[in-house]
Simulated assay, not measured.
Amino acid sequence: MSRNYLLNDSIISPLGFNTAVNIEAIRNSESALKLHHYSKFFENGYYAGLIESDLIDRKFNTIGDPTLFTKLEKLMILAIHQVIEEATSVDLNNTGLIISTTKGNIDQLGKNEFPTDRIYLWKMAQVIADFFEFKQKPIVVSNACISGALAIKTANDFIQAGRFSNAIVVGGDLVSEFVLSGFQSFQAISPEPCRPFSNDRKGVSLGEAAAAILIGPDDSETKQKVEYIDAVTANDANHISGPSRTGEGLYQSISRLLKNNNISTTQIDYLSAHGTATIYNDEMESIAFNRAGLESVPVNSLKGYYGHTLGTSALIESILTKHSLLNNELIASYNFTELGVSKNLNIIQNNENKDLNLALKTASGFGGCNLAMFLKKERI
């Protein structure tokens, strides 16, 4: 069975329109979270990471007509375009397209700017696939906030099954009125930039972004590359939105992943957590990590840089985990103040260079879904 690797990638966010710019921004402790005013739900404004539509249109104008596509479609197309440009050997006749999103074009509700069927996820996916003339039908992964990492697993599984020779995974979500009102109905949005795992955390901050990555076998002579090892999902079916108080689903996904791959916790060099900064999520993660014996592993959340980008979050974080492994670099958990969960965690508080080989990426989401994934640096 051939190995699959995380190859060319692209991150488009308020911090920049490619991966390199994004990495440099978070190295410099820059955050996309800014104060925005939206009186309908937030009298004093709210913090989020938003991308200006005019900037997107200027970038998109070099590859297509921006008036023909929604904001989210343009972001996803730009991300895919960067990946294809860098991967000259990609043959779209046998390359799969896996699309990760939670809400898609939900921002178009009631606007009448595009045909009404563009709100359907399948239609949005087909529009994006048609732009590049993918020959394979696109596949949509929409499983709450584990979607981005689950899409990587899906790509690997389809390649292993012989459906594709490789696949491009793309994710995207927007900070729409629909999403804002939903999180506000939970009283879950923080009045200040989010502080994952901190004792003074007050809730989630939202963000919008797109990201894309090429997944597949690699026969290049690259000295170091990152291999997808395995991923396991588990659903604790605890509540429509609230996580299990014991971290059962996340614990099950981690423990099964360890067992299936005969890996011990002492071999894990870095843990990229979900870390939304809500009271219950961060507490649940700390319990699950301790149950799995991961309390000493360096861990961070990247939500302080981007906010919670929903169906894109685990994909962006997986891409950044890949680069952390390649660069032997641990990134500080931005906005962390003092530990505010009941179980000990080894929160990364300062950027640090350290020899890294094996990383664990976790994600959790509404409906009790959880995922744990191993990524490993391979040296030639």
Rank of each mutant, 00 (worst) to 15 (best):
E283A: 10
K259N: 14
S253D: 06
I213N: 06
V226Q: 07
G203V: 01
Y280P: 00
A212M: 00
A277I: 06
S253T: 04
T233Q: 14
Y280I: 12
G242R: 13
S286T: 10
K223Q: 15
A234V: 00
L258I: 08
Q224V: 12
Y228Q: 04
N199Q: 13
Y270I: 13
D236F: 10
N235L: 07
N260E: 15
E283W: 07
E283M: 07
D200A: 12
N290F: 06
N261K: 04
R245W: 08
K223F: 11
A234N: 06
Y228N: 05
N199Y: 13
Y270C: 11
V232N: 03
S255N: 15
S241G: 03
G242W: 04
V232L: 01
S241A: 12
S255Q: 14
I213L: 11
T266N: 15
D282M: 10
D219K: 15
G207P: 04
A234C: 10
R201T: 08
P243R: 00
T266Q: 15
R245C: 08
A277L: 07
N261V: 01
E208K: 06
S220D: 12
T246R: 09
A277M: 09
N260Q: 15
D219C: 09
N235S: 07
M284H: 00
T222K: 14
P243Q: 00
A237I: 10
I240M: 14
K202N: 13
A273R: 03
E285P: 02
N281Q: 10
G207E: 07
S255H: 13
L250H: 01
I268K: 00
G203I: 03
A231E: 03
V232Y: 08
K202F: 06
Q267V: 02
N262C: 06
R245H: 12
S205R: 06
Q224I: 09
T278F: 03
N262W: 00
K225A: 10
T222Q: 15
E221G: 15
A231H: 05
T233I: 14
Y251Q: 10
N281D: 10
G293Q: 11
Y251S: 13
S286I: 08
G207N: 05
S198V: 12
G207L: 09
M284T: 05
I229H: 01
I279R: 11
T266G: 08
Q252E: 13
G275T: 10
T276W: 04
T278W: 03
A212V: 07
Q224S: 11
N281S: 10
G249K: 00
V226D: 02
L258C: 05
A234M: 03
V204E: 03
I215K: 01
T222D: 12
K223R: 14
E285T: 02
R201D: 04
V226L: 06
N262E: 10
G216L: 05
D230P: 00
D200T: 13
S205I: 05
A231G: 06
S205P: 07
S198K: 09
E227S: 15
S241D: 03
L258N: 04
D230L: 03
R201G: 09
R256E: 13
I254A: 03
A273W: 00
L250K: 07
